[in-house]
Amino acid sequence: MRLAHQFALENDLITADCIEATEFPDLVTEYRVQAVPKTVINQEQSVEGALPESYFLDTVLSAVDHSEGSQEP
């Protein structure tokens, strides 16, 4: 979890929520959270498990690149 918050510290465009799954069952259903930790990226993609720093970062960044153009707020 700390990694996501650290990412948020480094760039103002990045925000990071730590969500206690048992208190938000609706979100758990919506995002199909079956195991924790699970990281949902821009409400769209996700990564499961506690990953090492560089691998987690690359996975998150590639998810953002991948979704480029497919969603605009």
Binding site: M1, F7, T39, V40
Partner: peptide, 11 residues
Amino acid sequence: VTKPLHLEVFV
């Protein structure tokens, strides 16, 4: 990173 990136980590 030049686009908004929102991470929601379920724990």
